[in-house]
Design a protein around this nucleic acid. Structure first.
Lengths: 372, 372
DNA sequence: GAGGACACTGAATCGGTAT
DNA sequence: CATACCGATTCAGTGTCCT
């Protein structure tokens, strides 16, 4: 590649060339120093998360979890991580045009530090976006909530700065509803996941659908996108597909090689690719506990079947209790009847507003209340 | 109300009384100073977000920042907010027990500052939780993504600190799937929304379903919950319903009045409704040898895994023997598989009354037989 | 080929108690 | 303080192999 693009700086500065379509070798702060002021439209950054993992972790079946143990994710303290963050954000700010914008992705380990520093440097937060993973890794030890999301920050250059937002494109992508700040996107696996000798090339490759939405929302055709932590080049591949120009920084040669191979084989956008990016809507699953939480069914409520042969009492966590039997609405119904299975939603009834109703009626009401 | 609960501090300190079931008047930092060290189990905090709203700038204590004489800018406002955050978090940390925990809710305006300061003070993030609003306010001007979520941080007192998590109750509440870090809960409106003369009493009243999940997940019955920004008392109302003790701080008299009225009309749950599914962790421990002693398993019985790849013989003392390998049900299973660990109760099976059963089934039978 | 059983995997801050 | 030992714990998806 190596296409050099001429840009004209503000006022009457001499023309400068930008290394568009190139992966700059080396530390991203050093690499960005070679770029002129106010020259790129968007920065997308996926910095190390500073995970601070302890010992090994095994799944309940005894298999080993292949965690992120790379040296590039190790920092000795928050202070050192903060300095690293200030350094690259400062340089990113310098190369951004006044109406440019910045995206950073992170997890709870690092994103609060990044967000605060970003604000301290004068960036202006426009949204925080939640990437809700449809298939996250479970919490194998049952010690916390399943960590099922990551966070993206989108910021302009300052409170009064202008920025680009393709409102209509987002609304179209979201079935004519305003795009929300929570995005449901699967993690990167299957054919999209880059592998070498059967092993993943990069431990934290991001899904292209995520970059697709970011670039479609906040850049225009031919805009220049800089990714200081290029990795295996997801940003470059999607930029090429969407007709955006890109610059990457990456110090790991094997990542750069994989990125080149990938970007060269990336095809410019066609309609079929667009279709696969559309979010598919499916009916939300409702847990019985949600109805209890929402106050639609009080703990202590008596449930019974249509013939009033059986009864059970609702408990605080959404489980049922009937004699010595305890469990879910389905499980308790099944055991009481001695049946092979039971749909608790249709089996159990309650007195509601003077009438006898199956639980399913309340589920419908709840679904309406949480509809977008 | 005004029930005073006696607590005993660590070591041999004199007994101290806690203002349980009370709303402390005044600034929360001052109010918390009246509480003893290490005395509460949980802090839930919904601090003011009032940053960057344009126009007038108020300090979190309500005093007005004079734009002309103070020559404030966003850096000043962040610095003021940071100091306020450090102050109340420090005091909250002091009154928390060593195995207590803290929750804070916020939006992108303030949560990155809160999160970073929390980490700086030594709190250890356990999860960040996304409250995904099912019915958020749209972005009327079409300039950004619809801001459809808020963020909650859950933190323990430190990296090595213990904390409470009712894993099984959460799993039950979510229809037998692990509870994830993204929670879909409607915003507070309808009958739950407190109104006076047709206007909402508090601008940011939180839904009770949110507090319900927080308290059910991370407190036990009778635990003491402190809310430094009590507002109209959602925390107190849900705590009362769930049989938790509460303390509030609120400087606004009209909010305190509304909170009192609301909490007094809240109905506590009865004992059986309050019950939740208990994890097996809390069941009394049974030694495998006890089953042999009790005659439920005869020495010499052949055990095998589900696939019948391995087998072992039970010995008189409740140990297993397989080839040259001898030891506990866990130890032998672990060595045979070459696994990092093994739960012998679920790994080993035997023929019992014509069927193949895991040892765990016999443990359950034994547990029932020794119940009082 | 279709379908079922099974294996494998993903940015993970993933024990508690007794000695 | 470390060490030993007990024993609790997973969801969605892809790929492979076998029937």
């Amino acid at each position: 590649m190596g296409v050099l693009t001429k840009i004209r700086e503000a006022k009457t500065e001499p023309k400068v060339t930008l290394p568009v379509g190139q992966i700059l070798d080396g530390d991203c702060v050093e690499a960005m120093r070679s770029l002129p002021d106010a020259s790129v439209d968007l920065v997308f950054a996926d910095p190390p998360y500073n995970l601070q993992l302890g010992g090994d972790l095994n799944r309940p079946d005894g298999s080993h979890v292949d965690a992120v143990t790379n040296d590039w994710d190790k920092f000795d303290s928050f202070a050192i991580y903060d300095q690293f963050t200030r350094d690259w954000l400062t340089e990113a700010r310098r190369v951004l045009k006044p109406d440019g914008a910045l995206w950073v992705i992170g997890s709870y380990h690092n994103i609060y530090r990044v967000g605060a520093i970003l604000q301290d440097l004068g960036f202006w937060l426009l949204n925080d976006i939640v990437w809700r993973k449809s298939n996250p890794m479970p919490n194998f030890r049952g010690t916390r909530f399943t960590n099922a999301h990551e966070t993206l920050l989108w910021a302009s250059m300052g409170e009064k700065a202008r920025y680009h937002f393709n409102y209509t494109a987002m609304k179209t992508l979201n079935d004519e509803l305003q795009m929300r700040s929570d995005w449901v996107i699967p993690i990167c696996n299957g054919g999209e996941r880059l592998k070498r000798d059967g092993h993943k090339v990069h431990p934290t490759q991001k899904p292209e659908a995520l970059l697709y939405r970011v670039l479609l929302a906040t850049t225009d055709k031919n805009d220049i996108v800089l990714d200081p932590f290029f990795g295996t080049g997801t940003t470059g591949a999607v930029a090429k597909r969407l007709g955006r120009q890109w610059i990457g920084c990456e110090r790991d040669g094997s990542y750069r090689d994989a990125a080149w191979e990938r970007i060269e084989s990336a095809l410019p956008l066609d309609e079929s690719a667009l279709a696969t990016m559309q979010s598919r809507k499916s009916a939300p699953r409702v847990a019985f506990g949600s109805l209890v939480e929402a106050g639609m069914i009080a703990p202590g409520t008596e449930l019974f079947d249509k013939k009033r042969q059986y009864s059970a009492k609702v408990r605080a966590d959404g489980s049922l209790e009937s004699g010595t039997e305890k469990g879910s609405i389905h499980g308790v119904g099944k055991v009481l009847q001695g049946a092979p299975s039971c749909n608790g939603w249709t089996f159990w009834h309650l007195e509601h507003e003077g009438a006898t109703k199956p639980l399913d009626a309340l589920r419908q009401t709840y679904l309406l209340s949480i509809e977008d």
